Simulated scan of single mutants.
Amino acid sequence: MGRSTESFGKKENEKNRLKKQKEKEQKKEERKANAGKAKSFEDMLAYVDENGNISSTPPDPSKKKTVNAEDIQIGISRQEAVEQPEGPRNGTVTFFNDSKGYGFIKDTTTQESIFVHINGLVDAIKENDKVTFETEMGLKGPNAIKVKKV
């Protein structure tokens, strides 16, 4: 008696093919059944409530809030003008790279980290030095100038 030429893999592939064919036929039947039941425009509308959730019911007009166009803020908020103390400030050099010519000074009163460039130095500085300095506004924030060792 001869052996069957169908292997286990061939049987599985045939089962999967028949299963997909049945699923495809079922979907086709569902589409035919629902073809006459087109949704109306009102059924397709979706509303967004005050919390940003999507719902099928329209919002209540009595809960409507009015917003002034001037109050709408697009982008980042502007920084408030921080009053800089007049005269020299004191701080500690937290980082300074001699080869690149820049570093940062931590102000002792405000604990603010301020950028310093080698062009703003009066005396040579290194890390952990106590210094006095003045500030000016640069493109990216305050820059230390007239930096002197204490």
Rank of each mutant, 00 (worst) to 15 (best):
D60F: 01
T66M: 12
G75C: 07
D49S: 04
T108P: 07
T109E: 11
P85R: 15
N68W: 09
E86D: 10
T109R: 06
N68K: 15
N51E: 02
F95Q: 11
I72L: 02
T135L: 03
T92D: 08
D129F: 06
F104E: 01
T94G: 00
K63T: 05
V93K: 06
F104P: 00
I145N: 05
N51H: 12
V131C: 04
L121H: 01
N51M: 07
H117F: 00
E112F: 04
E136A: 11
V93W: 05
G52E: 03
D107V: 07
M44Q: 09
G91N: 09
G120W: 01
T57C: 12
K126V: 01
Y47G: 06
P88H: 08
T132V: 08
D123S: 07
R89I: 01
L139V: 09
S77N: 14
L121S: 03
G103I: 00
L139F: 10
I145S: 03
V116G: 09
G36Q: 01
S113N: 07
L139R: 14
N90G: 12
Y102V: 01
G87S: 00
I76L: 11
E83T: 15
Q73G: 12
G141D: 01
Q84F: 13
D71H: 12
R78P: 12
K130C: 04
E80Y: 13
R89S: 02
K126N: 00
L139C: 06
I72T: 10
V131W: 04
A144R: 05
V122N: 07
A144F: 03
P58E: 01
E134R: 13
K126S: 08
E86R: 09
N128K: 09
N68F: 09
K37G: 02
R78D: 05
I105Y: 06
N143I: 09
R89T: 02
A144M: 02
G36C: 01
M137L: 02
S40E: 04
K126C: 05
A81L: 15
L45W: 09
S99T: 14
K130G: 00
D49Y: 10
A35L: 06
S55D: 10
E86S: 15
T57Q: 08
V131E: 00
G87T: 05
F41L: 11
S62G: 05
T108F: 02
G36R: 12
N97F: 03
Q84A: 14
G75W: 09
K126L: 08
K39M: 12
S62P: 00
T94D: 13
Q84L: 15
D123R: 02
E112D: 11
N68P: 01
P85W: 09
D60M: 05
S77A: 14
S40Y: 06
I145E: 00
N51Q: 13
K39A: 13
G101Y: 09
K65G: 02
R78S: 14
N97G: 00
V67T: 11
Q84N: 14
S113W: 00
K140F: 06
F95K: 15
D129S: 04
E86L: 06
D98A: 07
V48Q: 15
I105L: 00
